[in-house]
């Protein structure tokens, strides 16, 4: 049919390595999301409640993360910091880059969540004698998490897809590993086709897991 012979055998042989790399992809994406959620919450709260230098710092973070390419951010943590003599390992470049990006996007989601929650919830909590910290951790934030649950799921999918940029900074997660094998065997199409399938499966698993988790978490 085509003037091309597909060779799937070498791809199948390196499948175990690709699966291992897929777990590395998942690991870095999950870590970036955890860091991103914590920092994103702080950025959102700072932007909602503070003024002055901290507000500007948080706003700059959020706007830069959202208005420049993720690859630019990765390059910045890669060789941009090199200008200051700071050389991160490929793993750390991807982790810091993704965390920076996720924190910026999640901050906006959280901000929307906080604004959507009636402030009477906070008042009611305080009227019961809760401290501000107790009111936030027990009443406000759990409800905000439900509001932003869907965006967080999407961001998790984005984090997985974005981690493929690791390929361009020498990190051997799923894409980097694929490129490594592809360039050694010249079966570029076959390798990347399998990798595309693996990403697709990962994304579907994340979405399914998120749906199951939602049923367990949100019974109200």
């Amino acid at each position: 049919m085509f003037d091309y012979n597909f060779h799937w055998r070498p791809v199948m042989k390196s499948l175990p390595d690709l699966i291992d790399a897929a777990f590395l992809t998942l690991q870095v994406a999950v870590l970036a999301m955890i860091i991103g959620i914590v920092i994103g919450l702080c950025l959102a709260l700072i932007r909602l409640h503070l003024k002055g230098p901290l507000y500007w710092l948080a706003s700059t973070w959020v706007e830069v993360a959202r208005n420049t390419p993720a690859l630019f951010q990765l390059f910045f943590f890669g060789f941009g910091l090199g200008a200051f003599g700071l050389h991160l390992s490929p793993y750390l470049i991807v982790l810091t880059g993704l965390s920076f990006n996720c924190a910026g996007y999640l901050a906006e989601n959280f901000r929307g969540g906080f604004q959507a929650l009636p402030d009477t919830q906070l008042r009611a909590s305080r009227s019961l004698g809760m401290t501000a910290w107790q009111a936030y951790t027990r009443v406000v934030i759990p409800q905000v998490f439900r509001i932003v649950y869907h965006p967080i799921t999407n961001q998790m999918v984005w984090a997985v897809l974005m981690s493929s940029l690791g390929m361009l900074v020498g990190f051997r997660e799923l894409s980097g590993e694929t490129q490594f094998f592809a360039s050694r065997t010249f079966r570029i199409f076959e390798y990347f086709a399998i990798t595309a399938v693996i990403y697709y499966v990962i994304v579907k698993i994340i979405l399914a897991a998120s749906r199951l988790l939602a049923i367990r978490l949100f019974r109200y």
């Binding site: 999918v157 897809l161 974005m162 493929s164 940029l165 390929m167 361009l168 894409s175 694929t178 490129q179 570029i188 199409f189 990347f192 086709a193 990798t195 595309a196 990403y199 697709y200 994304v203 579907k204």
Partner: peptide, 11 residues
């Protein structure tokens, strides 16, 4: 929407 753009491009 479920496969990284970079993979789509190379593919």
């Amino acid at each position: 929407r479920s496969v990284p753009l970079i993979i789509q491009l190379v593919l």
